[in-house]
Simulated scan of single mutants.
Amino acid sequence: MSAAGGRSLASEWFWLARPFTLTAAAVPVLFGTALAASKGYFSLGPFLAMLVASVLIQAATNMFNEYYDNERGLDTLESIGISGSIVKGRLTAGAVIRGALLLYTVSLFLGLYLVWVGGVSILILGCLSALGGYIYSAGPRPLAYTAFSEVAVFLFMGVLIVVISYAVQAGGFSLPVVLASLPLGGLVAAILLANNIRDMESDRRGGRRTVPIVLGRSGGVLVYRLYLAQAFLTVPVLVAFGVVPWSALLALLSVPLLVRVWRGIGRSKVPAEVDPFVKKTAGLHLVFGLLYSLGALLG
């Protein structure tokens, strides 16, 4: 099946999924699995199912975001950081929803497998994750339209995915797993905040009340940097208290990437200048997360 404009339907769905953001869903799975593997728990089937389900849910969430932003009039032909499938007429809004629901359906079946493998605890955690995805994107007042969106992403993508990924391997989780996930929460929240700094003018016109709109651009940049600092400063503290092994300090090798986004986000004033730093923040999250996961595995 083809979409208008020459691209295939699958191609449009791919770009709607915002592929550069999908590593944000994969990294916490890798880290949670690495924590479990370091304690002798690893099974390939649950790992692959968790990884694919997490990425598909993130892709579907991105598609829902584009659908609802279009419905609320936030997206225009001049918008930066969107696929443009709807506003440029390449796909109908209904086709976007169908794509998102297809991904959710596949994720549901993978989730049922994970519940079968991991038991009631996975069912409870999975329901919390599904609820988080819904209230973030949908409903009369989605969290994505408020100043609490980064906090929600911190908890659901930074912490909950790590906890579930660990639990499907080890059969349960403990407080140290939650604490170990905190640096990833800070970085994934920073990705979203960079996105919201870029989009603050269009979001204001659409009635959103995101952090940069509530606190102003300089306030948004300050909070962004606090999330980055939280991630990098928490790792040595966790090592000092024995929550993660000393080898987790490998994550600090990503400091050069940190410096680039730390400086760049403050210098960029218009959406086209900020957009590369959204992607660079996602890249920082990826590199930090891979090194952090390796460190956890080596421990």
Score class of each variant (00 low, 15 high):
Ser8Thr: 15
Leu9Pro: 09
Leu9Met: 15
Ala10Tyr: 10
Ala10His: 06
Ala10Asp: 01
Ala10Trp: 14
Ala10Pro: 02
Ser11Glu: 14
Ser11Thr: 14
Ser11Val: 13
Glu12Leu: 10
Glu12His: 03
Trp13Val: 06
Trp13Lys: 08
Phe14Cys: 02
Ala17Ile: 00
Ala17Phe: 01
Arg18Gly: 02
Pro19Asp: 04
Pro19Gln: 10
Phe20Val: 14
Thr21Asp: 02
Thr21Leu: 14
Thr21Cys: 08
Leu22Phe: 06
Thr23Glu: 02
Thr23Lys: 01
Ala24Glu: 01
Ala25Pro: 06
Ala25Asn: 05
Ala26Tyr: 10
Ala26Cys: 11
Ala26Asp: 11
Val27Cys: 12
Val27Ser: 11
Val27Met: 10
Pro28Leu: 00
Pro28Cys: 02
Pro28Ile: 04
Val29Gly: 04
Leu30Thr: 09
Phe31Leu: 12
Gly32Tyr: 07
Gly32Arg: 08
Gly32Gln: 07
Gly32Met: 09
Thr33Ser: 14
Thr33His: 07
Thr33Cys: 13
Thr33Trp: 04
Thr33Phe: 07
Ala34Gly: 13
Ala34Leu: 08
Ala34Val: 07
Leu35Cys: 11
Leu35Ile: 07
Ala36Tyr: 11
Ala36Ser: 13
Ala37Asn: 10
Ala37Pro: 13
Ala37Leu: 14
Ala37His: 04
Ser38Ile: 13
Ser38Asn: 13
Lys39Tyr: 12
Gly40Asn: 10
Tyr41Met: 04
Phe42Thr: 13
Phe42Trp: 05
Phe42Leu: 09
Ser43Pro: 02
Ser43Gln: 14
Leu44Glu: 06
Pro46Arg: 01
Pro46Ile: 07
Pro46Asp: 01
Phe47His: 04
Phe47Tyr: 14
Leu48Glu: 05
Leu48Arg: 03
Ala49Cys: 06
Ala49Arg: 00
Ala49Val: 03
Met50Val: 05
Met50Glu: 05
Met50Ala: 15
Met50Lys: 04
Leu51His: 01
Leu51Ala: 14
Leu51Ser: 03
Ala53Ile: 00
Ala53Phe: 00
Ala53Lys: 01
Val55Lys: 02
Val55Trp: 00
Val55Cys: 05
Leu56Phe: 09
Leu56His: 03
Ile57Gly: 02
Ile57Cys: 13
Ala59Val: 01
Ala59Glu: 02
Ala59Tyr: 05
Ala59Trp: 04
Ala59Cys: 02
